[in-house]
């Protein structure tokens, strides 16, 4: 969060070194190196197909990187299942297509992982879930099914579901791209509140207003490479790269 960042230590909570990823012959990520500090809010943008979603999905191993090194909170992502499980417990994720569990109520969606993964007592998990649903502004929907909610409400449930695991990092993969315009704001408001609370966040989004307001850093991807990273002011007013300028001119009309 800009200005009053609550955490002081400077060690990176996410360290990526020369990360590569191929889909068959297609070289999707081409040597990304990036360090994210505790409490930092990073926005990743770039044209579609530039590898930004794939990149953040490597951080909790939904995609496997094939070369390079990813270290999350001091734990390196390798084939070791224990490491992967530990990292997934510490990293929450919000998807473009929500991916709520449609056969479970909102309450069950939020309490599932704390009960089964953290072995939390059911009553305690429900109490926490209620607090989180209040935090994202939809406590009254607790006993409905995902299919009965609007897109914006569903996405807020997804955020609550991720927060229920008390993650240290939150990944957002185009959280507002599947939403109607009138629902984008309600999700962004929740995300802004989360950013102000000191959560480490990596957000893939095209919402430049959000980026300007809360991002510490904007990272521009193209062709699987990190083209430019900068503070929002510099990024919007003095982009250094031709590719960035072109992208900004298209997106900021």
């Amino acid at each position: 969060m800009k200005g009053e960042r609550p955490v002081t230590d400077n060690e990176g909570i996410i360290i990526c070194r020369e990360v590569h990823k191929w889909f068959g012959d297609f070289h999707a990520i081409r040597g990304i190196s990036l360090t994210v500090k505790r409490g930092e809010v990073d926005v990743i943008c770039g044209p579609s197909g530039s590898g930004k979603s794939t990149f953040i999905r490597t951080i909790n191993r939904l995609e496997e990187h094939q070369r390079g090194q990813i270290i999350v909170d001091g734990i390196e992502l390798t084939h070791d299942l224990k490491n992967i499980e530990t990292i997934r417990r510490e990293v929450g994720m919000v998807f473009q297509q929500f991916n709520l569990f449609p056969h479970l109520t909102v309450m069950q969606n939020v309490t599932l992982a704390p009960v089964w993964v953290l072995k939390m007592r059911k009553g305690q998990a429900q109490k926490r879930a209620m607090e989180l649903l209040e935090r994202v502004g939809i406590p009254e929907q607790a006993h409905k099914y995902p299919g009965q909610l609007s897109g914006g409400q569903q996405q807020r449930v997804v955020i609550a579901r991720a927060l229920a695991m008390a993650p240290k990092i939150m990944l957002f993969d185009e959280p507002t791209s599947a939403l109607d315009p009138e629902m984008i704001k309600e999700v962004l408001d929740v995300m802004k509140e989360l950013a102000r609370s000191g959560m480490t966040m990596i957000v893939v989004t095209h919402e430049m207003g959000f980026a300007r307001e809360v991002a510490d850093r904007i990272i521009f991807f193209d062709f699987g490479q990190l083209i430019e990273e900068n503070t929002p002011e510099e990024f919007f007013h003095n982009p250094t790269h031709e590719r960035t300028k072109l992208f900004l001119s298209q997106i900021l009309q």
Binding site: N60, R61, L62, E85, R88, R89, V91, G92, M93, F95, Q97, N99, L100, F101, L112, A113, W116, V117, R161, A162, A164, M165
Partner: peptide, 18 residues
């Protein structure tokens, strides 16, 4: 079952069996 359901379950820390 769409792939997203597996991904969401893994992302909240559930293992394969669960």
């Amino acid at each position: 079952i769409p792939k997203g359901q597996y991904e969401a379950a893994y992302a909240v820390g559930l293992k394969g069996m669960l």
